[in-house]
Design a binder for these strands. Structure first.
Lengths: 192, 192, 192, 192
DNA sequence: GATGAATGAGACTTCATTCAT
DNA sequence: AATGAATGAAGTCTCATTCAT
């Protein structure tokens, strides 16, 4: 009878968090086919607890994906608030770098036909809006080729994830950055 | 008891082929989780027949993946036989363009931790060898940045697949080519 | 620590009553498989509260059934106190008419092998005793066939419940009475 | 490639039959809540086999109920083909007598809100039609009270099931017949 | 005493694989 | 060799019951 009704009990939130983190790790390591029972076991809760927080497996996919996307949106917001003309490249680099671990999840989700643009349209739109803003700024500053659209930039980020992922799990941070750099170079003005 | 023991009866080969094509399509459309029964049904054979040709589901994954890879190797071989210094770009363009449909399968396989380099090492090595040769030729001709390695080029191809796939199924051929172009541009000498 | 230890606090009794009524309605509407969580929800209490008052689901069945039976016993007692020779028919009519809503619960309980005669032997015996007394009175008055036993009369009441229930929920009160009448007519002396 | 395509393989039919019989017995003995796994175990097949023949639990309910109803329809058809004016009473007696064992199933099905009139409307309509015909014949012969409708007769049969069932599992065949007789007596002309 | 989250056995169902026909 | 029924382990989800708050 106290506290805001919208807030979970302390133990409930702790469990929800634990399940979410465990799911994120396992999806990345083993793919989306890991069983909820296994996730529950590793999170140290019963299968029923998983179900209370995420009534169906899709809800868990959605939560994991949303969580990842939210972090990117936050980063984008921070950058959009500044006035660095190179912010677009910074954001893209961050997205790619941060995606080192999460690319597996993203790839797994994509393979399961789980599209963030459908599942969390608001967040995806937010991200696209920020990228669009930064892209416009970059166009104005002449730091990016004029024929690159927002959608293409987003697609290239997905491509960079895949490239890094393909290069192998043992790929160093430096090598990942190099790959990302090549793709970002492709975005620069073509005047050569 | 006649003919070479290694050769399948005509109907058997026809069935094998039908199952393989059906599986390829369904993996691309629905992901790797489609049931073998469903594949059998659409291929017009019984589930037992699928199992005769592909004793386990992984064998079917392998066959589908190998089949895809083989086409790329063939293309690479043809280009390596010529002497066009731009052959590398031609190959990469072809790989990216041809990957439109197969990207889904590749992505799905990757998500399932199914690595072609492990599953079909010979073919993968063939492809890498050809790319390496073409890359060397391009380096010599000065049409590609000197810090790009064979592995990175291969990774970028995977990245292009993902980018095209992410851009959506409705993406036109022209837009796909544009995306691939941006990635290829990143590979050109950085002299700017 | 005040009052008689056997008496519940006011709010506790109110909750117990609410759960009991809700359960009765839901058993009648949905069958015995409704979940306790759902009952709790509709009663406006937490699942833990249901469990406090009814430690196991069977205890809730028992309470619902006992409650229903008690009403019949009360009615029988009133009639036994009078001296109307037709009291048997009055009682049976009342039982059949009153059973309209409860028949669903009785039927469900019967299907679950839940026997009131076992679960609440005292109440059941009370009712049987009263019916026996009224049956004897009717025999003496010659208003009932001589070969009808107490057990059979009880069984016929159960039959009337089922017949009314089978006729459908939309059955009017008049039609229910007609069905009951036919069964009661079968109990009259066979002199024909 | 031989035989009629509509016919099951010998072993398949044998299994289907076994599952159906087992389900019928267990529903009668334990109610509808018995698990499909348990039915499979007792029938000596795997759970998957149950699922192949009855894709969902409702399909098994339907099959059991339909099977029971079919037997009654067959009996009714035979009697309708004859010209015995007492055929109605014969049919009702048979229904009640045959229901000794199956009443439990019927009651269980009814308790689960599973209505044969909805699930197998054709069979139920067939039965109702035959009863109607026999009832008309009885009316003409003056062996049944004129105010009894087809629906009421059907309801009374359900009532007789319940009465017999309520009288207890140990009830002898003779006692069952007596109960049924009382109900049928109620259907005779009221001229007394 | 009430609440509602956690538990975990078990329900229904799916499906890769085996095997009788 | 092909078929399709059978198998049974495993998956997702439910819910009676327990327990921390």
């Amino acid at each position: 009878m106290s506290g805001k009704p919208n807030e979970l009990r302390a133990d409930a939130r702790r469990n929800r968090e634990r399940v979410l983190r465990t799911a994120q790790q396992m999806f990345a390591q083993e793919g989306l086919n890991v069983s909820l029972d296994e996730i529950a076991r590793r999170a140290g809760v019963g299968p029923g607890t998983v179900h209370r927080h995420f009534p169906a497996k899709e809800a868990l996919y959605l939560a994991v994906a949303t969580d990842m996307l939210q972090q990117l949106v936050d980063e984008a917001e921070r950058l959009a608030a500044g006035d660095d003309p190179a912010a677009l490249f910074t954001l893209l680099s961050r997205m790619m770098a941060a995606g080192a671990e999460n690319a597996a999840v993203k790839s797994a989700l994509a393979a399961a036909e789980f599209d963030l643009r459908t599942a969390a349209p608001d967040l995806a739109a937010d991200l696209a809006r920020h990228v669009e803003g930064l892209l416009g700024r970059a166009h104005a500053a002449g730091t990016v080729r004029t024929d690159a659209t927002t959608d293409e930039v987003m697609a290239l980020v997905a491509g960079a994830f895949a490239a890094i992922r393909h290069a192998g799990a043992e790929t160093s941070r430096r090598r990942s950055a190099h790959l990302a750099g090549i793709i970002l170079d492709g975005l620069r003005p073509v005047a050569r």
